[in-house]
C-alpha cells in the first residue's frame, strides 16, 4: 500500500473517531444542560467523555476503515 493511501486512511479514520467522540461529548453537554449542573461539572464532563470516547473509538474505527478501503 502506498504512503498516500496510508495517510488517507489515517485522515478518514481520524475524522470518524474524532467526529463520533465529539458527538458523544456534545450529547453529554446537552444532557447535562437545563441548569441542573454548574459549568465546571458540565465542561469537565464533556472533556472526560471526549477523552474516554476517543480512547474507545480509535482502536475500533481504524480497523473498520482499513477493512472498508482495502
Amino acid at each position: 500500500m502506498s504512503s498516500i493511501t496510508e495517510r488517507r486512511l489515517a485522515v478518514v479514520s481520524a475524522l470518524w473517531y474524532t467526529g463520533l467522540s465529539t458527538a458523544l461529548a456534545l450529547g453529554f453537554y446537552l444532557a447535562a444542560g437545563g441548569g441542573r449542573y454548574d459549568m465546571v461539572a458540565r465542561f469537565g464532563g464533556v472533556i472526560w467523555v471526549f477523552i474516554l470516547a476517543m480512547i474507545i473509538t480509535m482502536p475500533v474505527i481504524i480497523p473498520l476503515v482499513k477493512k472498508k478501503y482495502q
Partner: peptide, 10 residues
C-alpha cells in the same frame, strides 16, 4: 469507565 461516569453523574 464511561458508563460508570455517566450513571453516577446523571
Amino acid at each position: 469507565s464511561l458508563l460508570v461516569f455517566g450513571l453516577w453523574f446523571f
